[in-house]
Design a protein around this nucleic acid. Structure first.
Lengths: 208, 208, 208, 208
DNA sequence: TATGAATGAGGCTTCATTCAT
DNA sequence: CATGAATGAAGCCTCATTCAT
């Protein structure tokens, strides 16, 4: 029956909220168990290592973002417009419903930077991220095919890099939405939109 | 005499290395003490709270970057060229001597995201960061004055934002230089240079 | 089931013995855990702060004394005789089974003199002490009502004060039963009894 | 020259103040050194063990009380009046200049209860206390000789005991002058005076 | 299967005391 | 002599993980 699955889901959800709020290290397994009304031992039955739970949460977070991109690729717009939409979605990620999710992903990237994560785990993450990556690649290809992006092959890398940087920076901003500007001044939506427009413009009319 | 200063320096250095390698939370005061051949108590004599040491390390890291920017602003180039230099320095930060420093700063930004840091501490950091911020502002102003940057006032925000994003993304990349591409594919120097060029081009010929 | 309670009891008991032997500060949580064959973490599960354990021990110690006074008030004697009994009980506290308990209480009073104790904690102690205080008040009232104590209202304060001093001194003596007389010469039971008799006599025939 | 003595005095004084304020355990050697503007090492040169300093402070505290009793015994009053004076002095100790000193002595009695003190140290204390003890004995003897105290020899013990209890309780009260009444309700000066009068009355007219 | 209870290893911090100038 | 610097031992407390019911 789905009872088990529900339980599991409630644990993952509690974990996600706590992880996003306090980070991975500061969130104890006990807190998570309490929050989802389960005994710690049960939590450990489902996720024998804390890291397993982290991976699960992150995986789901990534997957939660996929539909946003799928919707875009399935629309009828031209490639360049789809790209515009993708960047717009990123911008929205900072401030809207998905902020928690995005914050989580950012926190995870930090986590992996200093904690050796089992390869098997990373592969799961990779697979999840792959979906988004694939979609984006497709969009770029479309854009090139329908002529809305004037890109020579070498420029594709540029594009990917630009894209990457935009996303990377945006994701990081989510961490600081509520923190003082001291550490990292976060541009607002209008400013980000201007940058986006700059990029789109560049993609249409690359420098000679 | 400088004996005390040397000791202090050796502690800060050991801390810097360990922090950069393992992050702040995973690095224990004991390890730092051992690494700098000092008793823990001594370490605590100099830095009564672990956070004090963290702040010190970060402050020095920031200050270590200042000369790079100072050199640029004091050169004879035009504003736009100075900006080019600044972005180039950022790119170099990923892979050269300063990688460790940059990695440290990135780690700190993540640290603050989940650990409440005393205001007094943050102010010290702010002051250090301020120096760099001030230099960059000056460069932008110069560029606008000497006409090498075609910016209307509103565009200045765009510029700051672009700059901010470039730096933000770059800093984050330093964390992943040695990690598998799974989590975050890090563009290489050539790719980053192309993005830089795009930005410079845009600053000279903003979209109409 | 009572397993948990037993364990808890064994911890409290170990703590009580050690506290009485070595005082609160010199007794470490580790020692207590060892003595009751428990891991430190377990001890901390039951008593998250050392102070919690101290309070618990003291509270139980006080409550352990209550029956002695209850028995007295429920007897058929006259008020003045009950008072005599109360003082006698105090005297017995120095040397008999309850010496450890009394010593503990004395140690706690000293502890609070130099260590700020959370208000919430003090309230628990107050409640426990209150029971004894209430009984004694009742006895005094009885004595006044049945005429066995010749007290004008103002004398009641005297009485309470006398009583207070007797108890205070006695409790303190328990600390020094086994120590050399150097610091505080402890009167023996006969001597204390004489003082008691003096007091009783005074209560019956107050100075004109 | 007296320089050394002055230094020493200033250390002892600083120690006394801090000990009285925070107790012996909570007062660190460093704090004492700071407070008396001396290096810790110097402090340790004068008092190789913390305990040495404690003993010194206590010894001086006791000696500071001696003159109060000396003045009494050298007066022209009758024995019983001198006794009255002694008890009155005790009462004054709670609230006046000497409160700090008295508090200190009380704290020391606590200290010895749980910390094994070197015999040699205790002897010094004993000698100091002896002076006061001797004076009081003399007074009692006087009282018996001049007939102002109607005491049979066996009653002398009673007297000593009464006296002892009065002093013991009073000393303890000094610890709680500033603390909430929860732990130990401290009688006020008027109440204590009444108790004193009761005792004096008893000494003049012992129970038959 | 679900769970509360149990725990060792480890982290931060303090302090009496010793060293070296 | 005077002193700041140095330090190990020890204390409180936390947490991922295992046990036992």
């Amino acid at each position: 029956m789905g009872k088990k699955m529900e339980r599991r889901k409630s644990m993952v959800q509690a974990a996600r909220i706590l992880f996003a709020e306090q980070g991975f290290e500061k969130t104890t397994m006990q807190k998570i168990a309490d929050e989802s009304n389960v005994g710690v031992a049960t939590l450990f039955r489902y996720f024998p290592k804390k890291e397993d739970l982290i991976i699960e949460v992150v995986k789901e977070a990534i997957e939660q973002q996929v539909p946003y991109f799928e919707e875009i690729i399935h629309s009828n717009k031209k490639g360049i417009e789809k790209i515009d939409d993708v960047l717009t979605v990123y911008i929205r990620f900072i401030s809207e419903e998905n902020r928690e999710t995005t914050k989580l992903l950012e926190a995870f990237e930090l986590y992996t930077a200093f904690t050796p994560v089992e390869k098997r785990m990373l592969e799961e993450i990779e697979k999840a991220y792959g979906k988004i990556g694939h979609i984006i690649s497709e969009i770029v290809k479309e854009g090139k095919e329908d002529g809305s992006i004037q890109l020579s092959i070498s420029d594709e890398f540029v594009w990917n890099t630009i894209f990457n940087m935009f996303g990377t920076a945006i994701k990081k901003y989510t961490l600081y939405t509520f923190l003082p500007d001291v550490i990292l001044p976060v541009p607002n939506k209008e400013e980000l939109t201007k940058v986006k427009n700059m990029m789109i413009h560049f993609l249409k009319n690359p420098a000679k």
